[in-house]
């Protein structure tokens, strides 16, 4: 009897591993869902710590709103009924006050996020960068203090240089149905679909006239993160990164870049061809020095 019972844990280990590897093979079979060449701007080399010899590339993405310190924005527009119906969430779009049971429940929802490479969001980001520069210029013209002027000039220099290092991946949409998203954004060389987390929350809605009786809260969504936010570097590419990439000095870090080290001549050190499979799980096909 014990000999038969020992088969159960053994079978569990074997079958689970077979199932996982079949899933991996299925993800990578056939034409990929997306296929892009990304640079170090979008994929920064990550080393977890000295006690972990694994190597990963972090996926850097953002919303198309400029921020000098590269802090990622997460807020999106207010939700509409169509988007809410897609998620099948049974809370209303607007509530009167914070006593509503939906107000406090803020768990993350799994959804699929569309990241666009370059295109309109990049142009929008460049616009917001230009506005930021103009704002700094106006502040510089009014500044009287020498230290303030120096700080503003340094900030303006950095703002001018940031486009050379900024990731061109921007979140543009989300939905629980990835097939609907692919139908909406069909170009596999420009749009990546990845599983991610959306947090729905109620934001105070400003109504006129402003008084304590005329309040309301409107549902909004923030893209918390993508679930696969780093891609494992296969063993065959480790030497490339260890010997060629790391030997080159660079302002790029694990999660972005060091602001004061950026110059107009800063360039990424490498580029990687990344595929995203049927299950929206990525893998690195090849790597090369940046061209």
């Amino acid at each position: 009897m014990r000999d038969k019972k020992i088969g159960i844990p053994i079978l569990l280990v074997v079958l689970t591993n077979v199932f996982v590897l079949i899933g991996v093979s299925s993800n990578r079979s056939g034409p990929p869902d997306a296929h892009l060449v990304l640079t170090e701007r979008e994929l920064s080399l990550s080393k977890i710590d000295d006690e972990n010899s694994g190597m990963f590339l972090n996926i850097n993405w953002d919303l198309p709103v400029f921020n000098l310190y590269n802090a990622r924005h997460t807020e999106t527009e207010y939700l509409d009924q169509e988007k809410l119906d897609e998620f099948g969430w049974d809370c209303p779009l607007e509530i009167r006050d914070t006593h509503h049971p939906c107000y406090h429940y803020r768990s993350s929802v799994k959804a699929y996020i569309v990241l666009e490479f370059g295109g309109e969001p990049w142009e929008k980001w460049l616009e917001s960068q230009k506005k930021e520069l103009e704002s700094k210029q106006r502040a510089l013209e009014k500044a009287e203090n020498k230290n303030s002027r120096r700080t503003l000039e340094e900030d303006m220099e950095r703002i001018r240089n940031i486009p050379t290092v900024k990731s061109r991946l921007f979140a543009v949409d989300f939905s629980p149905d990835p097939l609907k998203l692919r139908a909406r954004y069909p170009d596999p060389s420009r749009f990546i679909i990845l599983p991610g987390l959306i947090r729905m929350y109620y934001n105070l809605l400003k109504k006129e006239p402003v008084n304590k009786d005329n309040r309301g809260y409107r549902l909004r969504a923030s893209i918390n993160d993508i679930l696969i936010n780093k891609i494992y570097v296969p063993d065959e590419f480790h030497e490339f990164f260890e010997t060629q990439v790391k030997a080159m000095p660079s302002p790029f870090t694990s999660y972005g870049f060091v602001l004061h080290k950026i110059t107009p001549d800063t360039r990424p050190r490498f580029q990687a061809t990344v595929n995203f499979g049927k299950r929206y799980e990525p893998w690195i096909e090849s790597v090369a020095l940046f061209q």
């Binding site: 996982v20 991996v24 599983p195 679930l227 799980e281």
Partner: peptide, 12 residues
């Protein structure tokens, strides 16, 4: 076993 396979193949 399952953790590392998840990391290696970028499994959700």
């Amino acid at each position: 076993n399952l953790n590392v396979l998840g990391y290696m193949f970028n499994i959700t």
